[in-house]
Design a protein around this nucleic acid. Sequence first.
DNA 1: TTCCAGGAGAGAG
DNA 2: CTCTCTCATGGA
Length: 307
Amino acid sequence: MGANHCEKLAKSVMKIQNVTDFSLKYTLESGQSFRWHKIGDAYYGVVEGRILKISQQGTTLHVESSTNEDETTFLPYLRHYLDLERDVPKLLAEVDNDAYIHRTIQTLWGMHILNQEIWETIASFILSQNNNVSRIRGIIRRLSERYGEKLRIATYEDYSFPSPQALATATEEELLACGTGYRASYLQAAAQAVINGELTLTSLKQLPYPEAKQELTRRQGIGEKVADCICLFSLGHLAALPIDVWIKRIFETLYLRRRATHREIREFAHNYFGEGVGYAQQYLFHYVHECPNWADAEHLSLIEVET
DNA sequence: TTCCAGGAGAGAG
DNA sequence: CTCTCTCATGGA
């Protein structure tokens, strides 16, 4: 009993130093993960069963975990999660082909694409279809509260992402009560497929991009766009190009300057940006959300003059 | 009240 | 192959 009075703020506290060309803010706020939120200058989120508190001061990341971590395995894990091992500036230089993409790279300098846990990514992006980010966050929060495990770091509480088992045994009525809408049956089908072995997460991670995408689109409720989100935000396939209404709009407005099918956009974007098209996509996507007047003639001409 | 959101599936042409 | 309609939800 007495020991609880002296309970430490976190089980593990550590630092990652010499982190250059990285923005924690843009990385965690760009709509690829739905589980982070900011309190003061720190970001709190749940990653694979523990709460992480991360803040950035210059080139140092201060990290606290709700569980006792072995630094020799956890720090490399975290570096991979944040995609710190990749030479992102080099990658961005390769896609920096024009004034528009240049502007997004400059504005959002340091934004990385995360390498998230596969099941959470599958479930989250099934829920993302025909939906908006704030509502997706709410659905995932309610599902986690109901079907996840309670976690705590200092006074901050959150819940782990529900396992496939937990979601498969839930009734569709309960899932609807969390706000999933018509996506409830897709979510349950995916959870069932993981449990009965129709969808093997470990082997999915070993497949090259085209095969992984094909395997994913086989499932009910996972089309081309959601499969590309999973491939990009979880499996590290940078050739994946999720085309949502915003990306379609951006390519039709800035690049193709006409109505275009998904196939035409995909073909153009891959030829134009190359293998790093997934990163280019993320910069374009987040930039137009940060800058609502992105399509105004005045804004566009300003960008062209600058470069 | 209508429109929109990190879409997908079913059906028609 | 492309086009269209519908699906559940809540904030703007």
